[in-house]
Design a protein around this nucleic acid. Structure first.
Lengths: 143, 143
DNA sequence: ATCTGTGCAAAGGTTTTGCAGGGGA
DNA sequence: TCCCCTGCAAAACCTTTGCACAGAT
């Protein structure tokens, strides 16, 4: 990810009649620097580390706005906290152990064909996907 | 799904040293009757309709137990409420509109190869998966 | 100048935890 | 009998909402 991402998001929001406020720009810059995804609280803490005070409320509102516009997506939920990922971010997925919660990454998913097929069937513009595998890791299987 | 599912879940729990209490059995029977998935609250209401009083707490604890043992999985979150699905349930996935939240189903996913590949790489026993596509539905695209 | 966006505080809702008592094995 | 499981109540938690003010266009 690079400055391209922020510029693209800013222009999308602007085109659609949203104001490019300081809080929104700050959130976007944090997202840009979080290739592994982020939670609302992480964005909040990151902005504070940068010496900028933004209310948690605005973080949530901005994230919801970005989701509605298809710029970020919710990818995972850990301990009741949502994890988001920029739609253009480097593409990977999770294999989650249902017993201990351990998360392993994997890359290739080969969903391009499926995506095209579903787009045709449902007449939706498919912008991203979430794929998670569930199972039991080696340690938990041994008990 | 059929009685097989309940029997299988019961024996799995039993084998692993858990007690087959009345609340747990009731929850399993509700799950069996919910091929489209269920939320904690729906399980709660369904048990009450059957004239059986179980605390919401026990529902949550039972669901968490079943998840840890790989018998059910969390498939979706709507308005902060988790939706679960028995791992052996009829297999389908969701395409979610990021703007209005509309959900469309689709079936084929063709992840068998990927599953095998990841199982080999990560040494996890893969028991299920969640796949969701995100995008914008026809109506929301028109604005 | 207008009207969207922000921040605070408080509400809202789901899920978890503590603890005393009950019921499987 | 033993100890896991249950149920209630309360806590903990993330997220949303109401309202007055600030700031982008």
């Amino acid at each position: 990810m690079g400055p391209t991402l922020v510029r693209q998001m800013l222009s999308t929001l602007s085109e659609r009649g949203h104001r490019l406020t300081r809080p929104r720009q700050t959130v976007l810059r944090v997202i840009e620097a979080s290739p592994e995804g982020f939670t609302a609280r992480q964005v909040y803490q990151a902005t504070r580390r940068r010496g900028i005070r933004i209310g948690l409320t605005s973080i949530y509102r901005t994230l919801n706005l970005l989701v509605r516009h298809g710029l970020i997506q919710e990818v995972h939920r850990e301990n009741g906290e949502h994890r988001y990922l920029a739609c253009e971010a480097n593409h990977h997925h999770h294999a989650v152990c249902m017993a201990c919660g351990r998360i392993l990454d994997f890359e290739a998913c080969g969903l391009e064909d499926l995506t095209r097929r579903v787009a045709r069937t449902t007449r939706m513009a498919i912008l991203g996907h979430r794929l998670e595998l569930f199972g039991q890791c080696q340690d938990c299987r041994k008990r």
